Amino acid sequence: MKYFAILSALIYFDIILDDAKAQLSIVNGTLAKIGQFPFAAAVINREYNKSTCSATMIAPKYALSGAYCFVGVRTGLLLVGDVESSPPQKPAPPSRQTRKIIKIIRHPQARTAGDKVNYIYNLAVLELNREVISSEGVSWIPLAKTDLADNSKCVAIGFGFHRKAEGEHDGKLRYGTLTFFL
């Protein structure tokens, strides 16, 4: 798998335009292939049995996600090694693994005094019940060894919405490219 030379880290977007919660989002994107982003994971809400957020594997037993994904949530499942977060219609790939989230460690400043999301600190570390097994389709993210230079090419990935129709959620891993500006 090829990573961009300067950056081999996930760029997670949530840009707030105003207090009305208008957001810029990366929508649609290109469907990912198995093994293309082996560190990508889907957070599965057990109540709805579908993905609610994306996560990034940072170690065999830990993932990083947005803290806002876990407001009022104490547990869940993490799915790795697949590009479809819903139960597959075809046989699942051999790399597909599911783990229970046993602990959610939110950044202490992830919420403001008014209990709004503080997007500067919107991070949560997820501890899993057991390690994921590294394979061609599953690994933890290699971190960048240098700072981003201006005009660096980056990739944003995530399970989530595909907006053919407003709010349509197909639970497939998608990606898009962008340029980082200082």
Rank of each mutant, 00 (worst) to 15 (best):
Y119S: 11
T112L: 11
K103I: 05
S85H: 03
S134L: 08
P91C: 01
F159C: 01
P87Y: 13
N151S: 11
L128V: 05
E131S: 14
K153G: 04
S85C: 10
I104D: 03
N151W: 00
L143H: 09
S135V: 09
S85F: 01
V138S: 05
D115H: 13
P94M: 02
E136Y: 11
P94S: 13
T112Q: 06
S134M: 03
E136F: 07
E84G: 14
G158I: 02
I105P: 06
T146N: 13
V155P: 02
K90Q: 11
K100Q: 12
E136K: 01
P87D: 09
R106I: 10
S86L: 12
N151M: 07
L123V: 15
T98A: 03
R111K: 05
R106Q: 13
K116Q: 15
C154D: 00
L77S: 15
K103T: 08
T112C: 11
L148C: 07
P91S: 05
S152E: 07
N122R: 09
I141K: 00
L128K: 01
N129P: 05
G76V: 08
A149I: 09
P91F: 05
K153D: 11
N151Q: 08
R96L: 05
T98L: 09
A156H: 04
I101F: 02
A156F: 10
H107S: 03
L78I: 13
I141E: 01
N151A: 07
V138L: 05
L143Q: 10
V132A: 10
E127N: 08
V117T: 12
W140D: 08
P93W: 00
P142W: 04
V155Q: 01
N151D: 06
